[in-house]
Design a protein around this nucleic acid. Structure first.
Lengths: 197, 197
DNA sequence: CCCAGATGTAAGCATCTGCTTACAACGGTA
DNA sequence: TACCGTTGTAAGCAGATGCTTACATCTGGG
């Protein structure tokens, strides 16, 4: 049912799988850039060089597209990253515009797409929980999950400030300098003593 | 031209100033809850108990309303808060749902409204710069502005995680516990040595 | 009292949104 | 070659959105 057996080598004139993939990639990029609500299905189809009707044929709805983008692009690579490297990898990915490719654009999609909608929130929740449980292992404290949430909140905030607000000096700051400051402060977040009366 | 001199004391039957104010307050709350793009002018008018045409008569456009909301509600009170108290006040305001009233809802408006639009970004930029310059005084380091940006990013991220993602344990965490962790880590951000090779 | 301006209302316009439908073109198969 | 499912296209629908227009109603000063 998959893997076309016939076409010699090059690209096919009519290739559903390729079109589907182009739609997926266009959606991933646009969701990361403009957020879920800020992106229209027409823009996605246009960037993919496809007709918008195909988007609904392949994904059912705009929401279905988001679900697939998050599930495919985000979760899989996230699960492959060791928790100890996750924060810095994600941070550097955000700072360099996802050039390292470690955490791809899942954080940015998450960042820009968390809106008011119930459905989108549900779809993105799993991605967030995946981050949380990974980061929670970094602190042995009882409230490790809370600290993980706070760390992830900082990631989201930095991404927000860089890609959305784009204000100096954060937007143009040296990734190493930012990492040094953030990771230094985070060290104390991980190792802070448990609630001691 | 202002201050009606005649009406005895109570409320007037037809009071433009009061209607204007209700629209402003409704817009402030809705922008804070749903973001700029997620809020419709019809919702604002409805919550204010006014006709939507009045919104355009008084503010020209939806964008004009945002500008006024930020300028009036946000900047003025922000400028009245000492920098040393700004971060904790804003953080507690976010954590308790703006109950303290210190930093009002300007941070939330900022948080939920930073979208793709050029105009909105321009309007909100001034608010962000105000926060930055206030926080930048907390660190004597050369890169104080960068550290201020990072601190504000954390604020935004925490607000995002709490009000938008609403995931436990952050959403229901004790504000004091969160403050303890965040302020502790922030201490090290303010006092970290300058870039030492 | 009476009228001009201030205030509030209802309806609608133009456009955009997610989504659907009807149809054309292609391509492997028999 | 004839066929039929697959892939791609064009047009449009119903609803929502920002904004405008034409009109009703109130209020205060002459």
């Amino acid at each position: 049912m998959e893997e076309a057996p016939c076409p010699p080598a090059g690209e096919r004139r009519r290739d559903a799988a390729a079109t589907r993939l182009r739609l997926l990639e266009a959606a991933r990029d646009l969701f990361a850039e403009r957020g879920y609500e800020g992106t229209t299905v027409r823009e996605i189809a246009e960037r993919a060089g496809a007709n918008q009707a195909l988007l609904f044929r392949y994904f059912g709805s705009k929401q279905g597209l988001l679900t697939e983008v998050v599930a495919q692009g985000g979760l899989e690579r996230l699960r492959a990253t060791p928790p100890g490297e996750l924060f810095e990898a994600s941070l550097r990915s955000l700072l360099t515009g996802s050039a390292t490719g470690a955490a791809d654009r899942s954080l940015e999609v998450y960042l820009r797409s968390v809106g008011r909608g119930e459905e989108e929130a549900g779809t993105l929740r799993e991605l967030g929980e995946e981050y949380q449980s990974a980061l929670a292992t970094l602190s042995g404290a009882e409230d490790g999950a809370l600290r993980a949430d706070l760390a992830m909140a900082w990631l989201l905030g930095i991404g927000l400030m860089r890609t959305v607000v784009a204000r100096e000096p954060l937007a143009g700051a040296d990734p190493d300098a930012v990492c040094r400051l953030v990771l230094g402060a985070l060290d104390h977040l991980w190792s802070a003593p448990d609630r001691t009366e």
